[in-house]
Nucleic acid binder design. Structure first.
Length: 830
RNA sequence: GCCCCCGUGUCCCAACUGGCAGAGGAAGCCGCCUUAAAAGCGGCGAGGUGCGGGUUCGAGUCCCGCCGGGGGCACCA
């Protein structure tokens, strides 16, 4: 790129040559090895969500890594000992599907892509410690995933149960609730159906309250919206279980418990509704209504989840032909079945209070069921309007509660009464369900359990881990068949029972890949550790992660699971903290022309081409400068060419410095020195606040004033110029490592600029000689005064009132009030 | 339907606990340099902060109500 015959001002450096050159130097110096900081340095763990190895890196990776690296490199410069590892989340469906397509083993695709991405990361110049590299599909890794599964099982936190589960007919596997989005498979978009299967679960629900409570410690360092999403997902609600006796057709009595958040409206419960697809409905239905129920359930099954999600569709249901007794009024209430009650939330049955719940009221209206108001809110009576009232009010028609106007008191009184009568109890209910972890796919960690006809479910002994995946399956062997491809691998699935030695079968399901990623941050501490999943000593030194950076798409799944794992490990005594990630930053997405990049829109931007055209540094700088890190950035709005120009301008400064390396800055041009020190000081605060775009803007300003100083100010030989240019190089080392290194070399220094240390700020140089004070009349600026920064309020007021422009503006009117904020402002009110 | 975030020059974006609306960049225009162009250097313009109220000496910033955009949840009893 550099050519002969150009003037000095127009000189540029060759970006691609610099990339080749410095990459080798860095490989040699290995400057980002954790543990290489000065002895006693504070340790900081910088983590970025590890990539999935599909294809090469894309613009999204480029953005998140560029932002993340600002933090990691800043910490190194500040003298911290930094752990910034990289690895791959390398199990998963895309590799398996590629293997079926290409008639090969999934490992082929996986490890080839990993090499491609690793090469791209190196070229991209991220400050990773490559010695910590891991892949979750390595047997050395999944050995410990399996080990953790067994430990969870020992603690009763991994268990099997029969249950209707989410089934993706396209991927031919079950899905966790978290992986079903709007009734669709979050991976392939197919409509999810239900199947009754025996599957493995992690008992996340046991940790629901702690997952909620411990979020208090994350407020302020995690994005509010992520905390809100997790809270919402956990879905805690306080209420009561209330028992209703149902008079069955056989004459027997069956007690049915409902969950309600409004036990205080029990006097207004006029009917009961059970989930149509729950066993309960079939168990209590009167014989005369059994056919009607069966027909209704069939109808509901046919209606897809998509239809169910439409909240405005009319209520439907069927009368079960039995009645339940209201425990406080003694009234007989009809029992209905409907699909608006969910089988797997609460108890799958509700007491309907149509006057104060719109859904119940809609149902009552369709079927002509009674409505009775028990809370008078002052609004129109819902019995007439068919608009349910849900606010606070005075209890009516509610026996002992009548006249009371306090909802909290109403709730606790009813609960007391129910508890005294043995008809109910106060309780807390969560929306969170247990985590379904079995997958009927091949490319995952096998579940380390053997099923023996005599001994039943037998865990694989620890010394036999890992249970390795067979390496002789490929192509059509891996086609989804509704059961795991492993079930058909006879040589693999047939085994000895570890307990009795008899013929037995391995569990042929594999674990959800989210199990792998729930603990990888601990494995990074020492990926070759063979005494356990991670080195507890290293965990004490480095954990928890000081800054985690990644996409908001993991707001619930990965982050919730990792938090759960950490709490379990804490309870096992393996770690001494309860939250894995102290701070979280969600970067925005890179979009193009207002829309997410996609093949169908044809608006994709190829990272490799961008790097070839503009160079790594310009692409990184463009990403960081684009805007606040958590905002989406539209590539069409940006100017990578402008970034190139800026980097060349900055680089050119280094060539203009004529003072020798090592020149002390003292005695240099004071104005330039002040600009330099002020920039460093501001950048420190901006980085702490993650305002990286402004960091770049401040660096540009410093480049601009340095250019002026060289051309028309103190001149290139002034020591302040060297100080300014060296500062620019250090600032750029966070964002544009190649340019920074080129500058550093040109300035007569040895590599690497990435570890030279952060410039120290001289507080004396942060003090301004004079400050511009603004004098306002009625809030409008009328005069400006140059004053000392430490001027007293009285002096400033005096100066302001004496200013001719101010006197003119006041024009003899009486001054009602003078507001003085020394040294910046005086406001005169007349 | 409920909850959250965001609306600042042509565009992307700055503006500390309320205190001179403009830092940086892009695009544009004008000079300098050049035989010329590119590159480089220097300079210029423009909005009163989506709309309407309110609080305040003073509001882009705080409060209320709208409009527009984005996101999350969604029959969760």
């Amino acid at each position: 790129m550099s050519e002969q015959g150009r003037t000095d001002e127009a000189a540029t450096y060759d970006m691609s040559a610099a990339q080749e050159k410095w990459r080798r130097v860095w490989d040699d110096l290995d400057p980002f090895r954790a543990g290489s900081a000065a002895p006693g340095a504070e340790k900081r763990y910088a983590l970025t969500m590890f990539p999935y190895p599909s294809g090469d890196l894309h613009m999204g990776h480029a953005e998140v890594m560029a932002l993340h690296d600002v933090i990691a490199r800043y910490w190194w410069q500040r003298g911290y000992d930094v752990l910034n590892p990289i690895g791959w989340d390398s199990f998963g469906l895309p590799a398996e599907n590629a293997a079926i397509r290409n008639d090969e083993h999934p490992a082929t695709y996986t490890y080839a892509n990993i090499e491609t991405q690793a090469e791209s990361f190196r070229r991209y110049g991220i400050s990773f410690d490559w010695s910590r590299r891991l892949h979750t599909s390595d047997p050395e890794y999944y050995r410990w995933t399996q080990w953790l599964f067994l430990k969870f099982r020992e603690r009763g936190l991994a268990y099997r149960k029969n249950s209707p589960v989410n089934w993706c007919p396209n991927d031919q596997t079950v899905l966790a609730n978290e992986q079903v989005v709007q009734g669709m498979c979050e991976r392939c978009g197919a409509e999810v159906t239900k199947r009754e299967l025996n599957q493995w679960y992690f008992k996340v629900t046991e940790y629901a309250q702690r997952l909620l409570d411990d979020m208090d410690a994350l407020v302020g360092t995690w994005p509010d919206r992520v905390l809100a999403m997790q809270r919402n997902w956990i879905g805690r609600s306080e209420g009561a279980h209330v028992d209703f006796d149902i008079e069955l057709a056989s004459g027997e009595t069956r007690t049915v418990t409902v969950f309600t958040t409004r036990p205080d409206t029990l006097y207004g419960a006029t009917f009961m509704v059970v989930a149509a697809d729950a066993k309960l409905a079939a168990e209590v239905v009167a014989p005369a209504q059994a056919d009607a129920l069966a027909a209704y359930v069939e109808e509901v099954r046919k209606a897809s989840d998509i239809d169910r999600l439409a909240t405005d569709r009319p209520k439907s249901g069927v009368d079960l032909g039995v009645t339940a007794t209201n425990p406080v009024t003694g009234e007989q209430m009809p029992v209905w079945a409907s699909d608006y009650v969910l089988a797997d939330y609460g108890t799958g049955a509700i007491m309907a209070v149509p006057a104060h719940d719109q859904r119940d009221l809609d149902f009552a209206k369709v079927f002509g069921l009674p409505v009775r108001r028990v809370v008078d809110t002052g609004e129109d009576n819902p019995e007439e309007t068919y608009v349910a009232t849900t606010g606070d009010g005075t209890y009516v028609n509610s026996g002992p509660l009548d006249g009371l106007a306090d909802k909290a008191a109403g709730i606790s009184r009813i609960i007391e009464q129910l508890e005294a009568d043995g008809r109910g109890t106060g309780t807390v209910n969560f929306r969170l369900r247990d985590w379904l972890l079995s997958r009927q796919r091949f490319w995952g960690a096998p579940i380390p359990v053997v099923h023996c006809p005599d001994c039943g479910e037998v865990p694989v002994p620890e010394d036999q881990l890992p249970v390795r995946l067979p390496d002789d399956l490929k192509g059509a062997d891996l086609k989804p068949k509704g059961v795991s491809p492993l079930a058909a691998a006879e040589a693999w699935v047939n085994t000895e029972c570890p307990s009795c030695g008899g013929q037995a079968l391995r569990d042929s399901d594999t674990m959800d890949t989210f199990v792998d990623s729930s603990w990888y941050y601990l494995r990074y501490l020492d990926p070759s550790y063979d005494q356990g999943p991670f080195d507890p000593e290293q965990a004490r030194e480095w954990m928890p992660v000081a800054q985690y950076v990644g996409g908001v798409e993991h707001a619930i799944l990965h982050l919730l699971y990792s938090r759960f794992f950490t709490k379990v490990l804490h309870d096992m005594g393996m770690v001494d903290f309860v939250e894995p990630f102290s701070a979280l930053l969600n970067q925005g997405q890179v979009i193009n022309q207002g829309k997410a990049m996609s093949k169908s829109l044809g608006n994709g931007v190829n990272l490799g081409e961008m790097i070839d055209t503009y160079g790594v540094d310009a692409v990184r700088l463009t990403m960081v400068f684009a805007g606040p890190p958590e905002d989406d950035i539209d590539w069409a709005d940006l100017s990578p060419g402008g970034s190139v120009k800026f980097l060349q301008r900055a680089w050119r400064l280094a060539g203009d410095v004529t003072s020798p390396a090592g020149t002390a800055p003292e005695g240099g041009d004071v104005a330039l020195r002040k600009a330099t020190h002020k920039t460093v000081h501001e950048v420190e605060q901006l980085i702490e606040a993650h305002r990286f775009n402004v960091v770049v803007a401040r660096t540009m300003e410093l480049v601009n004033v340095t250019r002026k100083a060289i051309d028309s100010g103190c001149g290139p030989a002034d020591p302040a110029v060297r100080e300014a240019v060296e500062t620019v190089a250090v600032l750029l080392s966070l964002v544009a490592p190649y340019t920074a290194e080129e500058m550093w070399e040109r300035l007569g220094h040895q590599p690497t600029v990435a570890r030279v240390g952060w410039p120290s700020v001289d507080p004396a140089l942060l003090v301004e000689d004079t400050v511009t004070a603004v004098v306002q009349i009625q809030g409008k600026v009328k005069a400006r005064l140059e004053v000392a920064p430490d001027i007293s309020e009285a002096d400033l007021e005096h100066l302001a009132m004496a200013d001719p422009a101010v006197v003119r503006a006041i024009d003899g009117r009486p001054v009602r009030k003078v507001v003085v904020r020394a040294p910046k402002l005086v406001n005169v009110v007349v």
